[in-house]
Design a binder for these strands. Structure first.
Lengths: 141, 141
DNA sequence: TGTATCGTAACTTTTTTTGTGACGGTATTG
DNA sequence: CAATACCGTCACAAAAAAAGTTACGATACA
């Protein structure tokens, strides 16, 4: 998992915390502590996955695309595509080494399985859960 | 998972493929396609975990520290420590945003759980398995 | 028509990862 | 005992990846 995933969850939880309102990328950026463009970039992936929707122009902004109880962290990870995945070493192995030539393909199987395990784990968390727990910690409930 | 993990598995599988022999970091580097120092760095972590052992000086080199059937990929990942883990976004959230202030700690729980899932998955693979599968693909068996 | 917003491209900066050179230490070999 | 072939590790360089910034066009609202 990487920092893009973390940021995405942060954003979605923030949106869930202000239902009915549209929030600007500038506001989100201030909450996360970064630049609005960085946020918009992230939101772009989330929008493709249907998790958020945006409206341009004055009065525009961002809102969740669906019920936060129906957004799992699995979906979030999925929306980030290859960026969130396990990575292979990218060296060119020696052409005559049978191990070097073939470990990669076996490793791919390993990663695929591990990835499924991660997804099963993330599947159990929703944005609504995240918000609930955040609020419990903050004592805002 | 990252490229250090992949490289570590590559190295261990290579060592498993030449039982009884010591292999030099230079040889391993050639197989992986990188610099010997990079390999030694990686081997250092693996040695701390007892997965390999080395002998300096002439005639020296590296060998597995135990039966390849007793080395799981979980151990390999564990030996890499924090490097192999999921990472949080490192921005400073806005001090007055209750979401920003607390998502991290909830995310830590999420990551911990996901990490355990990965470990359970990796636990099922041993270096001996890797070698067997590599050989099957290579048709060297 | 002015303004607040998104969308996105190009670029810069920072951070992380990987690679390299250098050199000391040590056991083995002859 | 000296030459050698290794490891161990530090400091630095280069490359790659990620994050941040600037800029500007497009659009709807007021």
């Amino acid at each position: 998992m990487n920092s893009r995933f973390s940021t995405a969850v942060h954003i979605l939880t923030l949106l869930a915390s202000t239902p009915g309102e549209r929030v600007t990328s500038e506001y989100i950026a201030a909450s996360v502590g970064t630049n609005p463009v960085v946020i918009r970039r992230q939101l772009a992936s989330l929008r493709e996955a249907g998790l958020v929707e945006s409206k341009g122009a004055r009065g525009g902004g961002w809102a969740l695309g669906r019920d936060p109880a129906k957004i799992t962290l699995k979906m979030v990870r999925h929306s980030l595509g290859a960026d969130a995945k396990f990575r292979m070493h990218r060296n060119d192995p020696h052409p005559e080494c049978p191990v070097g030539q073939n470990v990669r393909s076996v490793l791919e199987d390993v990663y695929e399985e591990a990835d499924r395990a991660v997804m099963r784990s993330l599947e159990q968390w929703t944005i609504a859960d995240m918000l609930k727990r955040v609020r419990r910690i903050a004592g805002t409930e």
